[in-house]
Design a protein around this nucleic acid. Structure first.
Length: 325
DNA sequence: GCGTCCAGGTCTACC
DNA sequence: GGTAGACCTGGACGC
């Protein structure tokens, strides 16, 4: 695919930080999840225990190189930050806070593991993925792009939409010998016409929603940082005010992830709870969410991520192939 | 080839 | 407060 017209931003190392995480913390499983989901951008690279990725902070593109020198029980992480211009002390603090929070470095899983010991579904998956933490979104708009493009589309088509968005409207950064693309800003998308997003990114009816979201974010909407400061339910309510963001998308995007059941995951959890596929997956979503909340409480987001990242082994244990859904 | 169907939700318009 | 029906359009599938 042609890269014509896309500027590559050269980023230089500007500072680096080191920090501990609450054990057990598996750097590899957390940042390089078995199911293959990326953390910040689809182009991010994970090689030999090192992650290169890109994010945006106060409108400026940042390259991040993150690696671990610790162990599962004594985790220590390093993050080198690359930028175009110098960053001030206040910004350094903000960037550090964002990275630590998004990597869930300070999340203590003791309680989750305790409840997992007496839970038939979780007992096996926490053993398989011991030390894996969930990750948070570094930035709000990309998370919303993901949610919108996942709606009403098979994965292949969702990936196509995301790839075209990044390709035609995104930015490119080059640092530490790596070059990768990053999501467009809300400002960029707000300036495009719905028609252009439909034809170039093949967004279909989602184009109108994405432009509307971009306009609100550009003008007056809490940042991911500000959403983190809210109660989870309050943050969710705020997200639900965006056009095209419903229950599923809000729970996927909100800080301290909820239990974002879609048709695919609803089938899986229905088999796990009731030993059979639902007749109509969309109809059982509300009831499944209630069951998950009663069973796992505030750790239901962790249960969600652990289960969906361990489908092959879990399938073998229960004798049903959950990877076929 | 070509036609048909419908997807890893959300909103609106009606009850 | 509950629920059909519409929504874009590219793949997947049947013929």
């Amino acid at each position: 695919m042609s890269m014509a017209g896309v500027m590559v931003l050269l980023l230089k190392e500007t500072f680096s930080v080191e920090f501990d995480a609450v054990p057990p913390y598996s750097f590899e499983l957390t940042l390089h999840k078995p199911a293959g989901w990326w953390w910040s951008t689809p182009d991010e690279i994970f090689e030999d225990g090192v992650c290169w990725t890109v994010t945006r902070f106060n409108g400026e593109l940042l390259g991040l190189k993150i690696w671990s020198t610790g162990t599962l029980q004594k985790p220590r992480m390093h993050c080198a930050v690359y930028s175009k211009a110098k960053v001030g002390n206040l910004e350094k603090q903000g960037i550090t806070r964002m990275v630590k929070r998004a990597l869930k470095a300070e999340e203590d899983l003791t309680e989750f593991y305790r409840l997992s010991r007496r839970d038939d579904i979780l007992r096996g998956v926490v053993k398989d993925l011991y030390g894996m933490h969930t990750v948070g979104w570094p930035e709000l708009f990309p998370a919303l792009i993901l949610a919108v493009t996942l709606q009403m589309a098979p994965m292949k088509r969702s990936n196509q939409m995301m790839d075209l968005l990044v390709e035609y409207f995104g930015d490119k950064a080059s640092f530490d010998g790596k070059t990768m693309r990053y999501w467009p800003s809300a400002e960029t998308i707000a300036a495009k016409s719905v028609k252009e997003l439909q034809t170039k990114a093949k967004l279909g009816y989602r184009a109108g929603n994405l432009v509307a979201i971009a306009e609100v974010l550009k003008d007056d909407f809490p940042t991911m940082d500000e959403l983190w400061a809210m109660e989870p339910e309050e943050a969710k309510k705020k997200l639900l005010t965006l056009r095209g963001i419903g229950d599923y998308s809000a729970e996927l995007v909100m800080p301290r992830m909820g239990f974002p059941l879609d048709v695919w995951s609803a089938k899986i959890f229905h088999v796990l709870f009731y030993d059979k596929e639902p007749e109509n997956p969309r109809d059982v979503i509300p009831a499944l969410k209630k069951v998950a909340e009663q069973r796992w409480g505030r750790w239901r987001g962790y249960a969600f991520v652990y289960v969906l990242n361990d489908l092959p082994a879990l399938s073998k244990r229960i004798g049903v192939d959950l990877t076929l859904f």
